[in-house]
Amino acid sequence: MENWFYACKIEDVPANGGVCVKYKEEQIALFNFSRRGEWYATQNECPHRQQMALSRGMIGSQNDEPKVACPFHKKTFSLATGECLSGDECAIKTYAVKIEGDKIYINLHPSAPKGELETHELIA
């Protein structure tokens, strides 16, 4: 698979939290959902008020759906699908993540495979 770019190291991302990764002009929120052993990447911009803030949000789950809450007005978005779980804000983009050794890679291409399976395999 092409288009993978190196983001940062595993140790750079706090457990059960996020960081913001810069790639060219893009800002990507990268989340280490260590409680579930999963990694997620989404756009950093919250669609509600166009704030570059999702990476600073709290993550958690709602009926088992992994989600992030924007720090500004606590709109929540699914980390898996990007769908807005509170009201009708637009969905956010989600991206594929893979781990090799202690390095994290992100793929902005929409067709890149996402999901826990791949990341689990790669961690192991």
Partner: peptide
């Protein structure tokens, strides 16, 4: 927080119970 969630909660937590 994780110890509390493991001992008395379930799931992964959220923005309502973490603070």
């Amino acid at each position: 927080y994780d110890e509390v969630l493991d001992t008395f909660g379930n799931g992964d937590g959220c923005e309502l119970c973490k603070p």
